[in-house]
Structure formats: structure tokens, C-alpha cells
């Protein structure tokens, strides 16, 4: 049993290890190790395409994770204890957002938004007072909107689990002691769910930063880091991609561990 488990762990970690190992390879050849060097990291970080894609990815991840955590928390708080058709409707939408394959979300967003923009652009041009009217097109906006959709569903699920585990008596006590609903939220509920909100933010950030398939459809002329990596992979394995991959994996690991620690401390305090 033990030996079997060890083999599975090797299976899980050898590929990651190999990538990391070869990213420090001094030679150009992917097949043999020729001494230690960090030159590929330097090359990757000096490559303007990589830096551009990285900046796009970070901006999109930051904005969409922020929107997702704020709007998701708001919705989760409202949905708690709610019954009736609104609750059922939201449950269904959250379920659909998580269940539908990412690729279908990407396609639907692409053709949905392009169709919408085709209608809106002439209308905008007609009412625009002088000068060139703005053209709505796929890019940052659609990337952020699409990532926010999926991650918001994720945040609602996380926060709801946290709210369900919370002692309702605390909020009731607060209102019995004449706190306003807003006061209760700020001084009782929010501090209790805050670790979960932060964990949701970090998970959303990681998801957005790592997402390839939705971005592939909705990015328009923008390039995110996963899109850059995907198109480079088609040209073969290079030490530079190994270096980028290692950095991306390391960054996700840090974010994940932080979010797990937050969820755990939150649970203990609650």
C-alpha cells in the first residue's frame, strides 16, 4: 500500500520536477543537463512578449478576482436564509455556471458578446456627440467579464459554506443589542467570513491567472500568459517555457497555500 502511494506521488510530482530541473539547465538542449544556470529566467523576464502577456494576465486576474469576491460575497449574504423562486433561480444559475464546460462558456461568451457589440456599435455611433465613437470589441473587458462569471459562482459556493457553518445566534444577539443590519454585517458577519472571502479571492485569482480555454475564445487581440505559453508549446519544448512554467507553478503554489491556511484559520475561529 505504502509503496503504491509512493509511486502515485512520484507520478504526480516527477513531471513538475523535471520541468523545474530543466529550467535551470545551462544548455539549450532539452535532453541533457549541462550545468546550472538561471539564464532562462533572465531571458524569459526580458522577453517583451512574455512581460506583456504577464501584465495582461495579472490585470485580468486582479480585476476579475476583486469583482468576483465583492459581488459573490454580496450575493451569498443575501441568499443566506432566503427562500422562494429567487433562491431557486440563483442556485440553478450557480449550478449551470460550474457545470457547463469551460469551452462552452468561452464559445457562448464569444458569439454572445460579438453579436451584442454588432448591435451596440452602430447605436453608439448614432448617438455619439462628435469625434470618433468608441468601438466595443473583445479584449480586456470580455476577459474580465468571463472570468468574473465563473469565479463569482465559486466565491458564492465558498462563502455560503462558511455562512452555513456560522452560529446564527451571533448575528441575532447583535441585532438584539440594537446594532443596525449594516452594523451587524460590518462588526459580526464580515470579520467571521473574511478569511473565506480572502480565500475565495485567491482561488479566483489563481483560476483566472491559469485559465486558458475561456481566454482563448474571448481574449480578442490580447494575449494572456497561458495563451502565450500554448502558442509557444506548438513550436516545441524550450528552456524558456520551462522557466516560465516553473515560475507560474511556484506562484500558484504560494497563492494556494495561503488560501488554504486562511480557510483553516477561519474555520477554527468560527
Amino acid at each position: 500500500m505504502r509503496i503504491y502511494a509512493a509511486f502515485v506521488y512520484l507520478f504526480l510530482y516527477i513531471p513538475i520536477g523535471v520541468i523545474a530541473l530543466f529550467s535551470f539547465n545551462a544548455g539549450r538542449h532539452a535532453s541533457q543537463l549541462q550545468g546550472f544556470s538561471v539564464q532562462w529566467y533572465g531571458k524569459a523576464l526580458k522577453n517583451p512578449f512574455v512581460m506583456d502577456a504577464l501584465q495582461t494576465s495579472l490585470t485580468v486576474a486582479l480585476v476579475s478576482a476583486t469583482c468576483a469576491s465583492v459581488f459573490g460575497t454580496m450575493a451569498a449574504v443575501a441568499l443566506q436564509g432566503m427562500k422562494g423562486p429567487v433562491r431557486v433561480g440563483f442556485d440553478l444559475l450557480i449550478y449551470v455556471a460550474v457545470m457547463i464546460p469551460g469551452i462552452v462558456i468561452g464559445i457562448a461568451t464569444l458569439i454572445g458578446l460579438v453579436t451584442l457589440f454588432d448591435q451596440l456599435n452602430p447605436a453608439l455611433a448614432a448617438i455619439w456627440p462628435g469625434g470618433a465613437p468608441p468601438q466595443l470589441s473583445m479584449g480586456y473587458g470580455s476577459l474580465i467579464a468571463a472570468h468574473t462569471l465563473f469565479t463569482m459562482a465559486l466565491v458564492i459556493i465558498i462563502i455560503r459554506a462558511r455562512l452555513a457553518g456560522m452560529d446564527r445566534a451571533l448575528a441575532e444577539a447583535s441585532s438584539d443589542l440594537y446594532a443596525t443590519p449594516m452594523g451587524t454585517f460590518r462588526q459580526v458577519t464580515l470579520p467571521l467570513i473574511f478569511p473565506a472571502v480572502l480565500a475565495g479571492f485567491l482561488l479566483s485569482f489563481t483560476f483566472s491567472f491559469d485559465d486558458f480555454i475561456i481566454a482563448f475564445f474571448v481574449a480578442g487581440s490580447e494575449t494572456t500568459l497561458p495563451i502565450y505559453v500554448f502558442s509557444s508549446i506548438r513550436r516545441g519544448v524550450t528552456p524558456e517555457i520551462n522557466a516560465i512554467g516553473t515560475m507560474v507553478l511556484a506562484a500558484s503554489l504560494v497563492l494556494l497555500i495561503t488560501s488554504q491556511v486562511l480557510l483553516r484559520t477561519g474555520r477554527r475561529r468560527g
Binding site: 513538475i16 520541468i19 530543466f22 491559469d210 497561458p226 508549446i233 512554467g245 500558484s252
Partner: peptide, 13 residues
Amino acid sequence: WTSILIRSYAWIF
């Protein structure tokens, strides 16, 4: 929770 893209890439290798 880490990039499936990078992890699949590792197997090309």
C-alpha cells in the same frame, strides 16, 4: 489547482 497547461506540457517532455 495549478496550471493544467503547464502540467500537460511536462508530459510532452
